[in-house]
Every structure is written in structure tokens, then in C-alpha cells.
Amino acid sequence: MGCTVNGREYEAAVDPRMTLADFLREKLRLTGTHLGCEHGVCGACTVIVDGSATRSCLMLAVQADGAEVETVEGLAEDGELAPLQQAFKRNHALQCGFCTPGFLMSVTAALREQSVADEEQAREVLSGNICRCTGYTGLVKSVLEASAGKDANA
């Protein structure tokens, strides 16, 4: 099985039943991808595969053969947080941090496709992920801030 993860090519022998989440965590030691429910419900394991937000707990590693995979470890560049990560920090959009990587990857994929103009759209973008700590206010503000920054830089 071979794929590109965060711009780096990897080749590895994997058990046919190994999930992409387990491959990332166990084989590549990219532990930012978290496993919560392992049923595709919570979104903590979300990564981007070939441009689409994907629940890595539901995808087999062998299904990623030849794919381009992005994890939360790939968002920051040269030690600088990505604009969305900076917005999360400024708006206190995390508490325990367990769900944060999944939110970041889901929102990153969504913002690449479209801008988010209002709170309703922001909540829709966030709706596939679950946080048990926050009231989502900081998350909504972060999505709107990152989207506005994206539009200003376009």
C-alpha cells in the first residue's frame, strides 16, 4: 500500500482490515488523528483524502492506496499555524482538544470549496463533528473569521 500523507510518500505493508486511522496513528505515528466513537459519528478522526473530508475510522488503509491524505499535522507550515488554527486559538474554540483535529480538517475541506457567510452556514459546516466541551460559539466564530480571511486573500 502506498500513499502520500502531508506531501510525503509512504509505502507500507498493512493488514487488509487495518483502518486508515490506525495506519496513520500506528504505522506513521501521526497521532493527531483521534479515535472517538470508531463508528464515523463523532468526526474526531476526520482527515482529507483526495480533497474530501473523510472519516478515517471507516476507511480501510488499503483504500487509500495511491491517494493524497492530509492530516492535522500537515496544516501548520514552517512552525506557523494555519489561519484556521490561529482563528481557533484566538476564539477559544477548544477546551480539551480531543475533537479539534477533526474539526480543523472538516472545516479546511469545506472552506476550500466555498466561503461561509453567516452563522447558519458555519453551523452546517461544523455539524458533522461533535464536541462535548464547548458551546460551539468559538467554533462558529473561528469558521467565520477564517472564511472572511480566505475571501480577503483571494
Rank of each mutant, 00 (worst) to 15 (best):
91 N>Y: 09
141 K>I: 03
137 T>C: 06
120 E>T: 15
45 C>V: 11
49 V>S: 00
95 Q>S: 09
149 G>S: 08
70 E>Y: 09
53 A>R: 06
138 G>I: 12
103 F>D: 00
54 T>N: 14
138 G>T: 08
144 L>E: 10
64 A>V: 09
58 L>M: 14
24 L>R: 00
20 L>N: 05
123 R>E: 14
61 A>I: 10
81 L>M: 11
86 Q>N: 02
35 L>Y: 03
34 H>D: 04
103 F>G: 04
65 D>I: 05
22 D>I: 03
62 V>D: 11
65 D>A: 15
131 C>D: 00
100 T>Q: 11
97 G>R: 09
47 V>M: 08
103 F>E: 02
76 A>M: 00
90 R>N: 08
132 R>E: 01
33 T>A: 07
154 A>I: 04
139 L>K: 02
117 A>E: 14
118 D>H: 05
124 E>P: 02
57 C>T: 05
119 E>L: 10
126 L>F: 04
137 T>G: 00
148 A>W: 07
24 L>S: 08
68 E>F: 06
6 N>L: 12
29 R>T: 09
35 L>F: 01
129 N>G: 09
136 Y>M: 01
39 H>W: 01
46 T>H: 05
14 V>S: 07
18 M>S: 11
106 S>M: 15
131 C>Y: 01
39 H>A: 06
62 V>R: 14
135 G>I: 02
90 R>W: 01
57 C>S: 08
59 M>V: 15
136 Y>G: 01
73 E>Q: 15
47 V>Q: 09
101 P>E: 12
85 Q>C: 06
15 D>S: 14
62 V>N: 08
33 T>C: 07
22 D>Y: 00
78 D>W: 02
116 V>M: 04
139 L>P: 00
130 I>C: 01
104 L>V: 10
76 A>E: 00
87 A>M: 06
42 C>N: 02
39 H>N: 06
23 F>D: 05
128 G>C: 07
105 M>K: 04
18 M>W: 00
50 D>I: 07
94 L>T: 14
153 N>D: 09
94 L>M: 15
97 G>N: 11
143 V>D: 13
153 N>C: 13
50 D>K: 02
116 V>H: 06
49 V>Q: 07
134 T>E: 03
102 G>V: 09
84 L>P: 02
25 R>H: 08
8 R>L: 06
126 L>M: 12
26 E>I: 14
143 V>I: 14
40 G>V: 02
2 G>Q: 06
113 E>N: 07
119 E>C: 09
150 K>D: 15
32 G>A: 05
11 E>T: 15
101 P>L: 08
88 F>H: 01
49 V>M: 14
49 V>K: 07
101 P>W: 08
62 V>Y: 13
22 D>H: 08
51 G>H: 02
